[in-house]
Structures are given as structure tokens and as C-alpha cells.
């Protein structure tokens, strides 16, 4: 889910109860496409506890416009596998009943 302006349809992230830059515009939640591309990343060689081995910290550009930081799953965490501008799709990762993380994975079938 993302938020957007009802007037212009412009999406924004992270969520907040008003449209950034023009709080007079009404906003609404909508179902996002889950499509994104890889904009930039580093591979953290010493991630915190809970991560196995180096992890790519990836800025993805959502098809709707906003950017977000995430991890790319189902993918080697190497410069050879993490290619800028590669197509990605949402891969929700359930942590517990309350928390689901918006991970991404390489898009299947383009």
C-alpha cells in the first residue's frame, strides 16, 4: 500500500496523514503495483545480528515514483548479481503477526 494525492494522483513515501508540500490536498491509500527498479546500493560486509553474511542495502524506485530502502531477496548479495536498474517485484516477508517487511526480489518473467 502507498499513499497519494487524490487531486494529482502523485504517490509519496514514507506515509503521513497529509500531502508533503501541500497539506490542503486530500490523500488516500491505494494498492501499489509492487514493481520497482534498483537505483543504488552498498553491500554491508558486517551487518547487525540477525543477518547471515554481507547484505545489500538497496534503494529501489517504485513504479509509482517514490524511493525506499530495502533488501533484495532471492539474489546473491554481490556486485555481479545486484545490477543497477534491474527489474524488481515485491516479496513481502512476514516477521510476526504485526510486522511484514517490504522486501523485493528480481522480477520473474520481466
Amino acid at each position: 500500500m502507498l499513499q497519494r494525492s487524490k487531486k494529482s494522483g502523485q504517490a509519496y513515501f514514507p506515509p503521513r496523514p497529509f500531502f508533503p508540500g501541500d497539506p490542503s490536498q486530500e490523500v488516500e491509500w491505494f494498492q501499489a503495483s509492487g514493481k520497482a527498479t534498483l537505483l543504488s546500493y552498498v553491500i554491508n560486509n558486517r551487518p547487525p545480528p540477525g543477518f547471515e553474511g554481507p547484505v545489500g542495502l538497496c534503494v529501489v524506485k517504485l513504479a509509482e515514483g517514490p524511493t525506499m530502502l530495502t533488501n533484495i531477496t532471492d539474489c546473491e548479495q554481490t556486485p555481479e548479481a545486484l545490477i543497477l536498474d534491474m527489474a524488481l517485484e515485491l516479496a513481502p516477508h512476514t516477521v510476526n503477526e504485526e510486522v511484514t517487511l517490504p522486501l523485493f526480489r528480481p522480477a520473474k518473467g520481466g
Binding site: 514514507p14 554491508n44 558486517r46 543477518f51 547484505v55 542495502l57 530502502l69 530495502t70 533488501n71
Partner: peptide
């Protein structure tokens, strides 16, 4: 923390 911290930043 909510939008960046969980990804494994140190």
C-alpha cells in the same frame, strides 16, 4: 528506524 534501520544498516 522504521524505514531504514531494519534493512541491516550499521
Amino acid at each position: 528506524a522504521q524505514y531504514e534501520g531494519w534493512t541491516g544498516v550499521t
